[in-house]
Every structure is written in C-alpha cells, then in structure tokens.
Design a protein around this nucleic acid. Structure first.
Lengths: 188, 188
DNA sequence: ACCATTATTTGACCTAAGTCAAATTTCTTG
DNA sequence: CAAGAAATTTGACTTAGGTCAAATAATGGT
C-alpha cells in the first residue's frame, strides 16, 4: 500500500506541463508556527495543505480528550477528508506540531481545475483511493493488534513518529492512554 | 454522509445514454446461493458486485475468528477495496448471506470505460470518496462509542441488519464477542 | 412431528487497558 | 543556572469486555 504513494508521485511527476502549470497556478506557499491551527472544528475544510516541511497532525475532541487521527510529514496531504469532500463543518482540527511550510490549494479552484484537466481528476481519485486504503488499514490494525503490537508497528514502520512527537500525541494516535503507552515503553 | 449516496445515485441517473450504455455493456447479472463466496482470501478482487437483491457481507479471519467488515444490501457495491484498487490478493472474503442477484463488472473493463467516459471517472471518484468517509466514520465510532452504544446505533440507523442477520455476524461487525452482544441485548 | 444442527443465552472467571493521583524527569525561559 | 512548567513514569485500583463452558432455544431436513 505504501507503494501506492510512489505510484501517485510517479503520476504527478509525469504530468504534462499544462496540467502541472494549472496545479501550480492554484497553489501557494504558506507558513505556520508551531501550535497554529490550520483547521478548526466546525470550520469547513476549504483548503488542502501539502506539507513542504515540518510536522502536523489532525485530531478531534472526545469528551475533552484529544484523539489524533493522522500525523503528517513532508509530502503528506493534510485535509479533513469528509469535511473537504462534502464541504461541511469539520469535526477535526489540523494543528502544526512544529513550524511548517505548506502548499495550499483551495477546494473550489481544484474542482474547477479537475473539470478542465482530466489528469487531475485521476489524481484526485488516486488520492481518495489511497486515503480509503490507509483508513481501512488503520481500522484493521485496531481490530487485530494489541496496544503493544500497534506501538511496535509504528516503531518499526514510522520510527520518525516516535522520535519527534510528544507521547501524549502518539498515545492518542494509537488509541491508548498516555500511562499505558508509558508502561509499554518501559517493558520493551 | 448518507446523503452522499443520494448524490451518487442522482449522478448515475443523470448520466447520458452513451455513458450509461457503456456501463451496461460491461456489466452482467449473476446469481449466488446463500453461503456462496463471491471472493475468497488471496484471490485478487477482479470484479465489483452491485447487489440487485439479497444480502452479502465482507469479512476476514483473525486467528480463526471471522471479523465482518461490511454488510451489503440492495444497491450496495461489494468489493474488497484495497484488493480491487491495487489488484493484489485480498485478505477478505465476500459471502452471500442469502441468495443474491448481483450486477458484475470486471475491473479492467471498468478501467477501460473510465478512460473513454470521463463521467465514469467522476463516478469512480465519488464511490472512492464515499467509501473513505464510510470507513473513517466506522473508525470514529470504534474510538468514541462503547459496545452498547455501537449496538444501539446500528439498531437505530440500520434496523434491517439486526432483523435478518445472525448475531455472530453482527457481533463480529460491531467488534465484540457474541456473548457480549447477547448480554447487551438482554439489558435493553 | 422429531432429531440434529445451529443459534443464543447465561454463568463464572480473567485480562488488557483505563483512571486517578502522585512522583520524577526533562524542557524552557527569565 | 534556577524556577516553573511540561512531559513522562510509577503505583494502586477499577472496569469493559473477553474467554471458556454449559444450558437453552430455534430451525431445517426427513
């Protein structure tokens, strides 16, 4: 499934200059500082953010507790999927975990561009497919792995997450309490 | 999110006759009997099944135990998403829970049709978006609701599931043991 | 209707992970 | 560098839901 990202990137690199130019025309770089919110709950996610540098995350509140749903690094595309797709209020926040630079694209501009450039439509499909598989896989892991196994998996597949990010965030991303995560770490 | 299905159906109904004909050309009706497997683990999901009538489900095995991932009714589209998208072996099975009639479309035929008919590409995007939001929501529920709340939710939003389907299947769909489900039902 | 499966319920006990509270360790920033 | 604030760890206890086993229903086939 990771290889699908490669396929997407290959696809982007192979875009004709017209399509590429159209994409660049509707994108612009922006900076956020650590702690800034790129998207707030109840706001419509009207933009997509391609991380150029830095780290960000998406989370929601479940009776006062933050639940991290996704962690973004360089080249990741940050959006609240359903809010973006349906253009309705988001239940999630997007927050900069470090200073970040992003390439911002407006929803409507991208919709318009898709109508003109069929390849962007295909790209959008690939991105949606990728996200679908990614979430499906996450759900699968929650069902089949124990807390310890999930931590080991992240340690194995995404060591950069464990390096840089506060345990509170990692715990909520793994769907376990901070204390449990700390105990898991103490064991291994 | 349910309303997105309506939008998809509206979109399908509004398709021009050419596109619609193309779609029909690559689809054919087929029957399965209760208990038949439309897709087996390790098979590549090379077809999509639109349920015309009957009930089906998708599931995988987690050390011997069946975990139901989706339940299909009339008009639902049954595929193993990642297997279909990547055309690689499936970890899931698709099984007829009753006798079913389906409209079968081959993966490659649909790919070809998408290249010719842009509207099918858009349709595919909508379907992928819908699935992404659906899974995301399922994950969300697993994180925020207790077993009882999840059962009540299904009872509320999809009473037809509880009517017709064996508790073993429902329990595995809710991610709880059969016994726990039975106890939940005894309480309410 | 009757037997044999298959489905569901009930009981007793167990366990992974959560909660609350306090102790440390590690960063920040003056 | 020191003081305060955050982050992390540790301890004691609770709990939702799981597991194993046995008892009752239901159901379908003959």
């Amino acid at each position: 499934m990771t290889s699908y990202i490669d396929r997407i990137n290959t696809y982007i690199k192979a875009l004709d200059s017209d399509t590429l130019a159209a994409l660049q025309n509707i994108s612009s770089e922006k900076h956020f500082k650590k702690g800034d919110l790129l998207l707030r709950q109840n706001e419509v996610c009207g933009k997509s953010y391609l991380l150029v540098s830095g780290i960000a995350r998406k989370f929601y509140l479940n009776d006062g507790k933050e639940v991290t749903t996704e962690i973004y690094f360089e080249n990741d595309l940050a959006v609240s999927f359903d809010s973006y797709t349906l253009q309705r209020p988001s239940r999630e926040y997007i927050e900069a975990l470090t200073d970040v630079t992003v390439s911002v694209t407006h929803y409507q501009a991208f919709q318009d561009a898709k109508a003109k450039y069929a390849k962007l439509l295909t790209l959008d499909l690939m991105l949606a497919e990728y996200y679908g598989m990614w979430v499906e896989n996450r759900l699968f892991q929650f069902h089949t792995l124990t807390a310890t196994e999930r931590y080991l998996d992240i340690l194995d597949k995404s060591p950069h997450i464990v390096q840089t990010i506060p345990l509170t965030v990692i715990a909520s991303y793994l769907g376990i309490s901070l204390e449990t995560l700390s105990r898991i770490r103490a064991k291994i």
